[in-house]
């Protein structure tokens, strides 16, 4: 057993992190929110150059056929930097869905970063994100893949998630969904964990700099204890996330259960990080001007994207009680 990232995986994460740290993602997010995609698309092309867009695409369709762990590493960093765009869809769920279902014609475009893809999935993902900028638009309902056209835009709490309901068009083929759904949920959890960690880091930095009553507020136990709870929850969510990725990589019969458990823990930890971050920042954190809002709203949006917490908990419990019933 070696339950830790390899040096190559750490290097991969660091190279994505370097790229995004230099890219001033908050301004990219703000532009994207206004429908100005140019900077964001440039960033996606740079991510493609690092191989990020091809991770979940099979080799014979131009991808890297990387492990779920590799994908999780990348998406966690994207969450850390609040990268806008259809991260879960284009990088994780859609490539697996298309490959498993045999609808392979879009895969080379997704792998190279030449096209972006988005997805709606009845009933848990009723609205597609960024359908206005995506080239590949697919929806899943009743076990069938169909193309769709975007309908009137809807406003998300996370303005960079440009949502629309779907105008269903022609059938593509029957859908094979099990793995694809799990990859989507896994990527959602990874994004949440990355965002949660960033919210914690911003809070620690702010608490160290901001003084009140003559002391940095981070010296007060009331603040320390809030942040200690956040780091504890995040640190205990991470192994569930990577454990779920390993379950997918080994085609474990418990993969769906493990992915749901990871999503529950990552979303709860990230949401605690968001609430705490706002409290630690105080009024400045409540402004649109401060970058905190970009992460805070993303966490709220992702927490109920790709299945609610209640649904995922019910999945976990059903798996556990069935497993025991059979034993």
């Amino acid at each position: 057993m070696r339950f830790t990232l390899s040096p190559e995986q750490r290097d991969f994460a660091a190279s994505i992190d370097d790229l995004l740290a230099a890219a001033d993602t908050p301004s990219v997010v703000r532009a994207w929110s206004h429908g100005e995609h140019e900077q964001g698309l440039r960033l996606w092309r740079q991510l493609a150059d690092l191989g990020v867009t091809g991770l979940a695409v099979p080799e014979e369709h131009g991808g890297l056929d990387a492990s779920a762990v590799d994908l999780t590493v990348a998406v966690e960093v994207l969450g850390r930097h609040a990268v806008p765009g259809p991260v879960v869809e284009s990088l994780a769920a859609l490539p697996v869905l298309l490959a498993d279902s045999g609808a392979t014609r879009w895969l080379p475009g997704l792998a190279s970063g030449g096209s972006l893809g988005t997805l709606a999935w009845s009933p848990h993902v009723p609205y597609a994100v960024d359908a206005d900028v995506a080239d590949v638009r697919v929806c899943v309902s009743d076990g069938v893949l169909r193309e769709f056209g975007p309908m009137a835009p809807l406003s998300s709490v996370d303005a960079s998630r440009r949502l629309s309901a779907v105008d269903v068009r022609g059938e593509i083929c029957p859908a094979r969904t099990d793995r694809a759904w799990s990859f989507g949920v896994l990527a959602c959890a990874a994004q949440l964990l990355g965002a949660g960690r960033r919210l914690l880091d911003m809070s620690v930095e702010y608490a160290t700099q901001r003084s009140q009553y003559g002391n940095p507020i981070g010296g007060y136990q009331a603040i320390k204890h809030l942040l200690a709870d956040v780091v504890t929850q995040l640190e205990l969510a991470r192994p569930l996330l990577y454990g779920a990725a390993v379950s997918l990589d080994t085609a474990s019969p418990n993969a769906a259960r493990d992915v749901s458990a990871a999503r529950v823990a990552c979303a709860d930890a990230a949401y605690l990080a968001a609430r705490t971050a706002l409290q630690v920042h105080g009024a400045i954190g409540y402004t649109a001007e401060h970058d905190l809002s970009l992460w805070l709203t993303k966490v709220r949006a992702l927490r109920s994207a790709w299945g609610t917490q209640a649904w995922h908990r019910a999945q976990v419990l059903a798996a556990l009680t069935t497993e025991r019933g059979a034993a």
């Binding site: 914690l200 620690v204 608490a207 160290t208 136990q221 320390k224 204890h225 200690a228 780091v231």
Partner: peptide, 12 residues
Amino acid sequence: RNTIAERLLGLP
């Protein structure tokens, strides 16, 4: 929590 905040997070 004090230990975590001071030694892991680096708070004062």
